[in-house]
Each structure stands twice: as structure tokens, then as C-alpha cells.
Design a protein around this nucleic acid. Structure first.
Length: 574
RNA sequence: CGGGGUGUAGCGCAGUUUGGUAGCGCACAUGGUUUGGGACCAUGGAGUCGGGGGUUCGAAUCCCUCCACCCCGACCA
């Protein structure tokens, strides 16, 4: 491709809407433009990258035995009503009516549609397992689209669905997808971790998330360097040793604590560390009031609480002032398990039962009670673990120390079980002619998000640094001065030669000053640059790698070999 | 959806406090000089000042209202 003809509107200045590197660089490099909030148009360079990522996904899915199909983005409401998700999905779903007032939505995901597709024709156990996928546009009316391609309202996703006869088969399909995903993200050049996820709203049992490690990631994960354990913060099991506790239970005592409400204020007032306190959080779940007791130095994990109570997250509401007053008889900040005005369900994190002589709110404004002990002074439903992990907690697998990091969720895999086959009545006949529900799995890759994740992990102050596997072009030939015939001739010659050998080449034949060309080449992140300049008449050019910027002079007829070396270094065939 | 902020030429911004009819840099066009890391000079084109309503002789500026966009929180590929 000749750059004089390429539609590549690069920007010197960053549009003020962009905050993170991938968003800024995609705009500056002329790879995409915003249409409206959360919806982007892909320009030639950006679309090329997207297609490269798609092709990697496609190859690995095909190799794993999945078959590609293409479904519509527009879906009838009926199927969603059958699965119940028409109501559960909420305002995230783009809904629309046709001229006959029939209801539709723009698909946020395709479990219902895939299940419906196969259920009338996939009838025998002999046809199983089946795995089908598509690469297609998804729509989610996000509460807050942000960070460019990171959280969009329209995005490109690969979604796959497996259908198996039994649990064992489903697990096998799951494992195959796991392996395919590891290959996909490795080929995209991403540093990633596979972590346990919370299956929450998708239903089903086991799930894992593929996290591209990045500071700007929206998910927090806990992981272990000494083994392969990793989990999202919502899911991670929280294990830690309590500090040494008193041997004897002391007599409890009411203490006047005027206006001392928060844990920090209490630490200050009592001159004691946060782990000597127990805090009580009060929640409203439907019509029930629930008190949750956890150690003062820890945070509650609301997802774990939701899973325990078997309610969706939006039904768990932190109690307001009025409810707290009603339950405790005191202002906010003095809640405790002793002497509650109302009989409420009390959940107690197991760690609290092991603490001795701790301090709790007195259920009376400006009072706390010290030397409180579980069992002697109060009782409740003991729950093993309701806490949010912290850096330094113990690894549940190997007892080593956990670390916390941020990640971009670029893929996930779910074991769905029979959730959708049951609600949509999708069955096959087994050897005995008996109807059985399919065991399903669903597997997503955020294709457009992966593009952003690659940039987040691979850029510098000058622009993007694409790995060869997804770069829009492998090589850019920069002609320093287009008024010099020998430079043009050599550039053109190399352009033809390399192109004919299967290398994707950009020829910078623009009538621009060299500085502009170098800046653009760096910005758009072409992995290899061949500079044709001063020594063109000696048949010598410069070979530069975008990732380290080191320049070496090579003879023009050795360029191909040098390029080949770099392909090999990046584990690519040429 | 709650909290905060912004909206003036394609992009980045000034002008708004104190009303007087719109400006700077980049980009774009033309001519010239330049040519190894975003050149310089000259000339030029480009604006419903987010929309609507109001106050006023007069509104980018004051008031009301609607909208869009961005950031922080709860959700997800």
C-alpha cells in the first residue's frame, strides 16, 4: 500500500475525550473515530488490525473443532422471554419494535439464539458434542461506556457455544476452549493470566476469565506467583491468619465514644489497630434486613454475600439511615450485634468467631462495647468467608502469599450446564431413546477489546508497537526524500520485492519531510521500518525495529533475510 | 443511575468574571524557500459560539430549559 493513497488521518494532538493510552493512540493513529459515545468506526489501519485478530481467533477455533456461523445482531424478544432474560437483563439491552409493534433487541449475547438454532435439528446423542461460534457485533447499552474500545456499547465479540450429552463432555469442551484461548492470546502477544471467575448472572457452575495484565484494567485479580492460582477479586477465597488473640475473655464494658463512628476514628480513640474491632453492615434484601459482621480491618465482598443469599446483585441494598435507626436505635456508626431493637438475620464471618475481646457498636448513639466475644455475648449464622481478598492473604492452593493486580478481561469461558437448555426446552435423545437436556458451555473473546489490550501492553511515548502477528502492515519503507530518484527507485524496488514474498508493506511515498514520516511510522506502530535515504545510491538502507529503535545499515538485498529473522524471533512463519 | 466537569472552525484551546456582534496554535488550500525525527515565510478558505426559549437597543457572555460528551462510583467481552 502506498501511503500517499492511504486514508490515515493521524493527529498531533490528543482529542480531549481520550484518557488511556489505547484510546488516545487509536484516535491519534487514525485507526478509529467515535460516532457516538461507546460506538466507533474503524478506519483502514484499525480495521486491518481487527481482521488480523479475528483471523487468529478463527484459526484457533477451527483447530479446536468449532464451526463458524453468523447470526443476526437483531433478535426477537420471544426467545429472551422464554429464558427469562428479557426481564433480567435490564436496561443494558437495546430494545426496539418493528412496524407491527413486535419486540426485538440488539443481541448483547447469543445463548438463546444458538440454543434455539440447534434444538430442532440436533436430536441424537450421536451428533454430540457440537461446538459452534461466530465473530459478530454485540450491543450492550452500558451505563457508562468508557476508555474507547475498552467498554463499548457496540463491540466485536467471538462467541462460541458447546453442546454436550453429559457433564464430562461439557468439561472436555471447556478444556478445549481453554487451550484454544491460551493459544489465541499468546499469538496476540498478550501477557495474560487465567483466573477463576464468578459465574453470577450467566448461570452455571465453573467459569474462568482471561485477563490481559494492565494498570488500566477494570477488573482486580488476586494471583499467586508460586502456583497457578488466580481469581477475580469477587471470587477469590480469602484466607489469612488472625493476629494472636487474648487468652482470657474479659468482662464486657460499655464505653462512651462521642461522635466516633468510622473504623479510623475508633483506632484513634481506643489507640488500637483496626483488627481489634468488628464492624456490622446492614443490608436490605427484598423485605428482609440482614446484618453482616466482619473484622474491622477487612472489606465485605458483596458478591459472596449475594451468592450466599441467592439474590442478584441489584437486590442487595446497603441500608439507609432510617433503616439503621430502626434496627439499632442509634445513628449510623454505632451498629453492633448486642441489644438490637429488631430481630434481624445475623451473618457472621468465621474469623469473627475466633477473635477475642473485640469492640463493637453499642446500638446506642455515641456508645461502643468492648471485650465482646462471639458465643458468650451473641450468636448468629456463621459463614466461612464473606471477605474481599487483600494483598498478602494466603493462596488457597499452595499457602503462599497472594498478590493483587489489575487486568482487562479479554476472554471468558463458562460451564452453563442445563440453564438454557432447560428454559428453552432443548433436548436430544440418548441411547435409550430418552430425552435429555444438553449440557452447554459458552465462550467469549472480546475481539475489539483485545485490540485495545494489546496497545495497553505495547506502546511507548511515540505510539503503538504492534506485534507482527496483528500489525496492520509488517514493514514500512520510508523514502526520506522523494525528490531523489535513486531513493524512489530503491524504495519501489524493495516494495515490489518484499510484497511478492508475502510481506505486507507500506511504502511511504508521500511528499512530506522525513520527520513527519518517522513520526507517523512510530505512531501507527509498524514493527519494522526500512529507511531509504542517503546511501540509496550505494544500495544501502537502514533497518529499524519499532520495539527497540535500534538502527542498522544493511544492503538492500539482505533486507528480506533481516525481516525473516524478526518473524522467527516472534514465532511467525513467513 | 448518583456525584463532578466540559461544550467556541477538523483537532487543541483563549474569550464568559465586567454584554458591544469571535480569536490563537495545529490541520487544510495556493505560491515560494526547505528536506534524516512533526520546517519557515506569505496569502487564503473554513464558525447555526451544543439546541430552544427568555432578559436587553444589543447575548458566546446574564436567566430558564433541553441535549451531547468526558471523569469518579455500582456492571461486563
Amino acid at each position: 500500500m502506498r501511503m500517499s493513497k492511504l486514508y490515515m488521518p493521524t493527529l498531533r494532538e490528543v482529542p480531549s475525550e481520550a484518557e488511556i493510552p489505547s484510546h488516545k493512540l487509536l484516535l491519534r493513529a487514525g485507526m478509529m473515530r467515535k460516532l457516538v459515545s461507546g460506538v466507533y468506526s474503524y478506519l483502514p489501519l484499525g480495521y486491518k488490525v481487527l481482521k488480523k485478530i479475528e483471523d487468529i481467533v478463527r484459526e484457533e477455533m477451527d483447530k479446536a473443532g468449532s464451526q463458524e456461523v453468523l447470526m443476526s445482531a437483531i433478535q426477537p424478544a420471544e426467545l429472551w422471554k422464554q429464558s427469562g432474560r428479557w426481564y433480567d437483563y435490564g436496561p443494558e439491552m437495546f430494545r426496539l419494535n418493528d412496524r407491527h409493534e413486535r419486540e426485538f433487541c440488539l443481541g448483547p449475547t447469543h445463548e438463546e439464539i444458538f440454543t434455539d438454532l440447534i434444538k430442532n435439528e440436533l436430536k441424537s446423542y450421536k451428533q454430540l458434542p457440537l461446538n459452534i461460534y461466530q465473530i459478530q457485533t454485540k450491543y450492550r447499552d452500558e451505563k457508562r461506556p468508557r476508555f474507547g474500545l475498552m467498554r463499548c456499547r457496540e463491540f466485536i465479540m467471538k462467541d462460541a457455544y458447546s453442546f454436550d450429552r453429559d457433564e464430562e463432555g461439557m468439561k472436555e469442551s471447556y478444556r478445549e476452549m481453554w487451550e484454544a484461548y491460551e493459544k489465541i492470546f499468546t499469538r496476540c502477544g498478550l501477557k495474560f493470566r487465567v483466573v477463576e471467575g464468578d459465574s453470577g448472572a450467566m448461570g452455571g457452575s465453573d467459569s474462568h476469565e482471561f485477563m490481559a495484565m494492565s494498570e488500566v484494567g477494570e477488573s482486580e485479580i488476586a494471583y499467586c506467583d508460586d502456583c497457578d492460582y488466580g481469581a477475580t477479586d469477587e471470587r477469590a477465597e480469602c484466607i489469612y491468619d488472625l493476629k494472636e488473640q487474648d487468652n482470657e475473655e474479659l468482662e464486657k464494658e460499655k464505653v462512651h465514644t462521642p461522635s466516633v463512628k468510622t473504623i479510623e476514628q475508633l483506632e484513634d480513640f481506643f489507640k488500637l489497630p483496626a483488627d481489634k474491632f468488628v464492624k456490622m453492615l446492614i443490608y436490605k434484601v427484598k423485605d428482609e434486613i440482614i446484618g453482616v459482621l466482619i473484622p474491622g480491618d477487612r472489606e465485605l465482598n458483596e458478591i459472596k454475600l449475594c451468592n450466599l443469599l441467592e439474590v442478584p446483585e441489584h437486590e442487595l441494598i446497603l441500608a439507609d439511615e432510617d433503616i439503621i435507626k430502626e434496627v439499632t436505635g442509634a445513628e449510623v456508626g454505632f451498629a453492633g450485634p448486642l441489644g438490637l431493637k429488631k430481630d434481624i438475620r445475623l451473618l457472621v464471618d468465621s474469623r469473627v468467631t475466633k477473635m477475642k475481646n473485640f469492640i463493637v457498636g453499642g446500638n446506642e448513639t455515641d456508645y461502643h462495647i468492648k471485650n465482646v466475644n462471639y458465643g458468650r455475648d451473641f450468636e448468629g449464622e456463621v459463614v466461612n468467608d464473606l471477605l474481599l481478598v487483600q494483598e498478602g492473604d494466603k493462596c488457597p492452593k499452595c499457602n503462599s502469599t497472594l498478590k493483587i493486580a489489575r487486568g482487562i478481561e479479554v476472554g471468558n469461558i463458562f460451564q452453563l450446564g442445563t440453564k438454557y437448555s432447560k428454559s428453552l426446552n432443548a433436548t436430544y435423545l440418548d441411547e435409550n431413546g430418552k430425552e435429555q437436556y444438553f449440557l452447554m458451555g459458552s465462550y467469549g473473546v472480546g475481539v475489539s477489546r483485545t485490540m485495545a489490550a494489546i496497545i495497553e501492553q505495547s506502546h511507548d511515548e511515540n505510539g503503538i508497537i504492534w506485534p507482527l502477528s496483528v500489525a496492520p502492515y509488517h514493514v514500512v519503507i520510508t523514502i526520506v526524500n522523494v525528490k531523489k530518484d535513486e531513493q524512489i527507485e530503491l524504495g519501489e524496488k524493495l516494495y515490489k520485492e518484499l510484497s511478492s514474498k508475502g510481506i505486507e508493506v507500506l511504502l511511504d511515498d508521500r511528499k512530506e519531510r522525513p520527520g513527519v514520516k518517522f513520526k507517523d511510522a512510530d505512531l501507527i506502530g509498524i514493527p519494522i521500518r526500512i529507511t531509504v535515504g542517503r546511501k540509496a545510491n550505494e544500495n544501502i538502507v537502514e533497518f529499524v525495529l519499532r520495539r527497540d529503535g535500534e538502527k542498522i545499515e544493511v544492503k538492500a538485498d539482505e533486507v528480506f533475510e533481516k525481516i525473516k529473522e524478526e518473524f522467527e524471533r516472534q514465532n511467525l512463519k513467513l
